[in-house]
Each structure stands twice: as structure tokens, then as C-alpha cells.
Amino acid sequence: MSAPRDPFFPADKSIRAATGPLQIRHLGRIGYQEAWDLQAELAAQRALGEIGDTVLVLEHPNVYTAGKRTQPEDRPSNGLPVVDVDRGGRITWHGPGQLVVYPILKLAEPVDVVDYVRRLEEALIHVVRQAGVSTAGRVDGRSGVWVPAHDGREDAKVAALGIRITRGVTMHGIALNCANTLEYYEHIIPCGITDAGVTTLSRELGREVSIEEMTQPFLDALEEVLSGRMQVADHTFGSAPDPSKGLGRRVRQD
């Protein structure tokens, strides 16, 4: 199978500028603002060459985060606060039972944002399928990893992506729904999408799928895709409108 579009450089080559091992930091449960501040500090250090590529592995307490394309109607109806953040996309939720991984990487030149996102998706698709959701894949026009409609359910997102690249260094990353509640999604328009749902691995597989179960498989797959040893394939099973296309940046809420 071929990639959704040809990358800027060969698919079997590393997308990282460095050749050293990834430095993995397991942070446990950590507040969103604290993790964001740490990302910014590490990204600045990485841009200056003071540290190597670093991957933060964590879980957040309940929090809504609004990307640069978030619209007023997306915001929560339950009164919970929202952190306006500098990643792409619209609004989402993070919380207990969700695996969050933030790679702080210096990308090889020429920087290929689409290829980086596709590689993150490929790692997620690989581990989600390995866990037992064999139909997981992409929806053309939308980021993240999706499970096709089945058993009366609509297409549903099981993993979300949101990134920022500054001075060639990545921030933010992925959130994989393992065993989290879906309640908090009911009070927002997740990622600005009204015609599809959200799901978890536990819901799809009918058993408890913990963060711990998915962490090392994802980190292994992440290293494989970044290096080019695992290549992006076309796992697209449908298409839908891009919920951020044509939207201006959000108006900050005061």
C-alpha cells in the first residue's frame, strides 16, 4: 500500500534530524499547564541543541484544550474551564484513562509536517490493530485514528492528534483513548466534528484496556515510524469534510 501522498524525502528514511536514541520521560498524571510549560522549555532547549529528542509520556486530569481553530460553539456546556493552546485543530478533552504522548523532536530538513502527522497516525493504527481493533484506520480529510461504523454506531475517533512545529521542533502530540469515560465529550463538539463519534479501546474490545498496556507498544511503534523502519501505508476507509478547513483562528475568550 502507498502513503496518502509522497513525502518530501524517502519513506524508509528517518524523519528525525538526530540519530541518537529517544529519551523517554514517564511523568504519570500531570496538570496540563505544567506539562505544556515543560514542553515549551524542552522545545527551546532542543532547538538550541542542548538536549536530544525527548518523548513525554503522561496522563492528564480532566481538562478541555482548545486549538487555534476552535469556534465559540465548540466550547463546553458544563462550565468546566478551557485551556487555549498553541496547537492546531479545535477543541478536545484529556483525562484519566487516556494515554498522552508528547514528542519533542528536531525534524530533518526539509520539514514535512504532513509526513510527521502521518507517521504518528501509523504508529497509532499499528498498536490499535495489534490490540484487536483490526478495522482501525484513517478518514480522509480528518486527522487521528478512526474505527468504522459498526453495530449501529457511527464512525468514531479512538485517537486524536494535535501538533505544533517551531524552529523545526515538534510539540504536543497524540491522545489515545484507552479506558477513559466518554462523558466529557458530550459537552463539547469534539474536534469540531458533529457527524461522527468518539470511542475507546475498552469500549471497542469489551474489556479493560489500560494505559500501561498500550504505552510500551506505542513507544516501540513510534520509534519504528520515526526511523522509517515502519512505513506509512494507506489505511483510509472513508472520507469526510475537514472540520478546520477555511476557519480563522479563534477569538480568545475573556
Rank of each mutant, 00 (worst) to 15 (best):
M1V: 13
D6F: 09
A11I: 12
K13D: 12
I15Q: 06
A17R: 08
A17M: 04
L22K: 06
R25I: 10
R29Y: 00
G31C: 10
Y32F: 14
E34W: 00
W36K: 05
W36S: 03
Q39M: 11
A40R: 11
L42N: 03
A43N: 00
A47V: 07
G49I: 09
E50T: 09
G52D: 07
E59H: 01
P61V: 08
P61E: 09
G67C: 00
K68V: 13
K68E: 08
P72N: 07
R75E: 13
N78D: 15
N78L: 11
G79D: 11
G79A: 12
P81W: 10
P81F: 10
V83P: 03
V83I: 15
D86P: 11
R87N: 03
R87F: 04
G88E: 07
T92R: 00
W93D: 03
Q98R: 07
V101F: 03
K106G: 13
L107S: 06
L107A: 05
L107R: 01
A108M: 06
E109W: 10
V111A: 03
D112E: 07
D112S: 09
V114T: 13
Y116T: 05
V117M: 10
R119D: 05
R119F: 05
R119N: 01
I125S: 01
H126T: 14
V127K: 01
V127P: 00
R129E: 09
Q130S: 13
G132R: 12
S134T: 15
S134V: 15
T135Q: 14
T135E: 15
R138T: 02
D140P: 06
S143I: 05
A149I: 02
A149H: 06
K157N: 06
L161W: 04
G162K: 08
V169A: 08
N177Y: 08
C178L: 12
N180C: 14
E186T: 13
C191T: 04
G192S: 04
I193S: 01
D195E: 11
A196S: 07
A196M: 05
R203H: 14
L205T: 06
L205C: 09
R207S: 08
E212D: 14
M214E: 07
P217C: 11
F218A: 03
A221D: 01
L222A: 09
S227G: 08
G228L: 10
Q231F: 02
H235I: 02
T236G: 08
S239R: 13
A240T: 03
P243C: 02
S244K: 01
K245T: 04
G246I: 01
R250E: 01
V251T: 15
R252E: 15
D254P: 13
